[in-house]
């Protein structure tokens, strides 16, 4: 357990457990203290007082799919930058130019997606 990274993970596990468990615990405790009188109309989904006009389990807008795809591409590229960013300072101009080339490639990708119309919300 002397490896600092490993103990960080253990610490965060404990942290996450507490943060997750305490609200659950609160919900469970107040289950006995709060009223519970379910009835049919109360358990209808809200739609401005009308019966539900359409079912929310249905295909949705194609644009969401487009943006999700573009997101994955750019998010991965961003993550790659995180691998080099912390050590870039002491590497001089040559390394910076190399990262610059990478950024230009990312920009070209963005330009491509733009021209292909992937960034238009229709």
């Amino acid at each position: 357990m002397n490896d600092p990274y490993q103990s960080d993970v253990v610490f965060l596990l404990g942290f996450a457990l507490a943060v997750f468990a305490l609200p659950v615990f609160t919900i469970l405790v107040f289950r006995w203290l709060r009223p519970s009188r379910p009835e049919r109309l109360k358990r209808e989904p809200y739609e401005s007082g009308m019966p539900q006009a359409s079912v929310p389990r249905r295909p949705f807008h194609m644009a969401y799919y487009n943006f999700a795809l573009v997101f994955i591409v750019f998010e991965v590229e961003t993550l790659l930058l995180f691998a080099i960013a912390p050590v870039l300072r002491d590497q001089g101009w040559a390394a910076l130019a190399e990262v610059g080339i990478f950024v230009v490639l990312v920009a070209l990708g963005l330009f491509y997606a733009w021209r292909k119309g992937a960034l238009v919300w229709r």
Partner: peptide, 8 residues
């Protein structure tokens, strides 16, 4: 772990 839970 306990220390983490406390801070959580």
């Amino acid at each position: 772990f306990a220390w983490g839970a406390l801070w959580g």
